[in-house]
């Protein structure tokens, strides 16, 4: 199983329809043009399915950049 970081990277690349090479630890809602509210919803659904977790309500709005996503996913996977 690949690392969490790699899985997130791949997933974001798929949902936002950009090449994986354009995703980095500094990627955020500011740097990815196609990251709109509909894709944000799709992102959350995809993350929950991929990792088999439920992201708490209050965290849903915090998933705005790669580092925070990695952190929150890691917290919830435990």
């Amino acid at each position: 199983m690949e690392s969490i970081e790699k899985r997130i990277s791949l997933l974001m690349s798929t949902v936002f329809e950009i090449p994986e090479s354009e995703i980095s630890v500094n990627s955020s809602i500011d740097t990815i043009d196609s990251w709109d509210s509909i894709r944000h919803l799709n992102l959350i659904l995809a993350l929950e399915e991929e990792f088999g977790i439920v992201i708490p309500d209050e965290e849903v709005g915090n998933l705005v950049n790669f580092k925070l996503i990695e952190l929150i996913i890691t917290e919830n996977v435990k």
Binding site: E17, N42, L45, A46, E49, E50
Partner: peptide
Amino acid sequence: LKYTQILQENKI
């Protein structure tokens, strides 16, 4: 298929 796999297959 997972949602992300469907997205990828769709793209192909």
